[in-house]
Every structure is written in structure tokens, then in C-alpha cells.
């Protein structure tokens, strides 16, 4: 594991850096393909930036509301840079809301924007697994297989490596399509990526050693992945048959907010 990148006296948390790098690389690929589906790269960039900002602010506000007592003792903590003071569910809700408002104001199609963001989604999945490999999070179950790796006091499934491979497979399906002119109806490209991601999570969660479980031992992430798989397969078929065709185009635009 390699959680810290030491540059002189500066200690940089590597997992966070990998996630930021994943966001940047994914966004770059998404922007390059945006013109193919008649989406302005600026709109894609601004949508992600708005959701990201909304997620950070919303996550902090939700945390303050939930744990108000802690902030009354130290009001200055409101502006702390600790990422541990973000409430993920609240951040996610505000991020979605901010993205929704943005698309409404800009009169953008949700499905087309999701298509545009499919490569970012795939790259981020891979980056998340790499970040877990660096930090030692998302570790595997104990195993005596020849390729098991020594981690946290036992030989374990290299579950992070499995997930990197799965992320790369999703990316290998999604990435070449970015440059293809024969685009499917709006939303299909994202539904395909989500189906693959859901299927890989459903399979690979079984090898994790840190799964949150129900009382009967069923892994919550597998059930969530199964629901994602079902919804995306249904959406894929419905959109492929009845969806709005995407007009391939080439839009020029400079990045700005």
C-alpha cells in the first residue's frame, strides 16, 4: 500500500490525488467525445463543475445540520478543510439537484448529458479502485489462491486489482464509442456502461472482505448493483427501441464558466 506521496516535507494523500486525476482524465475524454453527440464541451465541463461544487457545499451543510452540536463548540470548523466533515448522502443529493437545475436552465437533455459523461464514469470507477489499492481500503476476503496478496494481516483476494480490471473493461467498451459517429439513441451509451458496471460490481463484491451486510449475510452493495443492472438493462432496451435519436454533430466551443 502507498497511501502517502512524500515530496520533500510535503505529504500528499495519494488516494485523493488519484481520484482528482481520474476526474480530470475522465472529463478530458468525455469532452473530446461530446461534439459527436451534439453536446457542447463547455456544458459538460460546467455540469460536472456545478455538481462537484454542489456536492462539496451540500456535503458540508448537511454535516453541519446533522452534527450541529459539534460546530457550536467550534464555529470555525465550518470552514475546515477536513474531508471527514462532509456528509456523503447530503452531498450527493445536492450535487444531483445542482446538476438538475443546471440542465434545466441550459435546456439540456439529461440522457444526452449522461451519454457524454459515460467515459468519465468509467475512468472514475477505475480511479476509485486504484485509490483503494493505494490506501488499502476495499480489501479482499482471506484467500489461499496463488495470486492472493498479503494485506492487513492475511493473504487476501486482490479485490482492488479485480476492480481495476473491471473498470478498464467498462472503459474499453465506452471509450472507442466516444469517437464513433454512429451514435445510439440518447441514454443508451450510459445505460450500457451502467449495466457493465453493475454486473462487475455484482460479481466482484463477493470477493470483498469489507462488505456491509444484511443480518442474513447478503452484501448490500451486491443488491444495489443487481438493481442497477436490472434498471440499466431495462433502460437500454426501452431507449434503444423508443429513444430520441442523437444527431451527430460537431460543436466548437471554448471552456468557460
Amino acid at each position: 500500500m502507498f497511501p502517502i506521496l512524500q515530496i520533500g516535507s510535503l505529504a500528499i494523500p495519494l488516494p485523493g490525488l488519484i481520484l482528482l486525476l481520474g476526474l480530470w482524465v475522465g472529463l478530458e475524454i468525455s469532452e473530446r467525445g461530446a461534439r459527436r453527440i451534439n453536446v457542447r464541451p463547455d456544458d459538460l465541463y460546467n455540469l460536472v463543475f456545478t455538481a462537484f461544487l454542489g456536492g462539496i457545499v451540500g456535503g458540508r451543510v448537511a454535516y453541519i445540520v446533522r452534527f450541529a452540536e459539534g460546530f457550536m463548540a467550534s464555529p470555525a470548523s465550518v470552514f475546515s478543510l477536513n474531508p471527514g466533515l462532509l456528509y456523503p448522502a447530503g452531498g450527493l443529493a445536492v450535487a444531483f439537484f445542482a446538476a438538475f437545475i443546471f440542465t434545466q436552465r441550459k435546456k439540456l437533455s439529461w440522457l444526452t448529458m449522461l451519454d457524454g459523461l459515460a467515459p468519465l464514469f468509467a475512468v472514475f470507477l477505475t480511479a476509485l479502485a486504484v485509490a483503494n489499492l493505494a490506501s488499502g481500503d476495499g480489501f479482499g476476503q482471506a484467500s489461499d489462491l496463488p495470486w492472493a496478496m498479503e494485506l492487513w494481516g492475511a493473504r487476501r483476494h486482490p479485490s482492488q486489482v479485480y476492480e481495476i480490471a473491471a473498470g478498464l473493461i467498462v472503459l474499453a467498451v465506452v471509450w472507442p464509442r466516444v469517437y464513433s459517429f454512429g451514435q445510439p439513441p440518447a441514454g443508451v451509451r450510459f445505460a450500457q456502461a451502467a449495466a457493465l458496471a453493475g454486473l462487475s460490481r455484482l460479481i466482484l463484491e463477493a470477493f470483498r472482505g469489507d462488505s456491509a451486510t444484511l443480518p442474513n449475510g447478503w452484501r448490500i452493495a451486491q443488491i444495489a448493483a443487481w438493481l442497477v443492472l436490472g434498471a440499466s438493462l431495462w433502460g437500454w432496451r426501452a431507449l434503444q427501441k423508443n429513444g430520441t435519436p442523437v444527431n451527430p454533430g460537431k460543436i466548437e466551443g471554448k471552456r468557460s464558466l
Binding site: 452534527f67 459539534g70 467550534s74 466533515l85
Partner: peptide, 9 residues
């Protein structure tokens, strides 16, 4: 670490 972080943990 901020006081609020320690407090909640």
C-alpha cells in the same frame, strides 16, 4: 483535525 471532526467522531 478540526474540533467538530473530533467531536462527532
Amino acid at each position: 483535525m478540526a474540533v467538530a471532526l473530533l467531536f462527532t467522531r
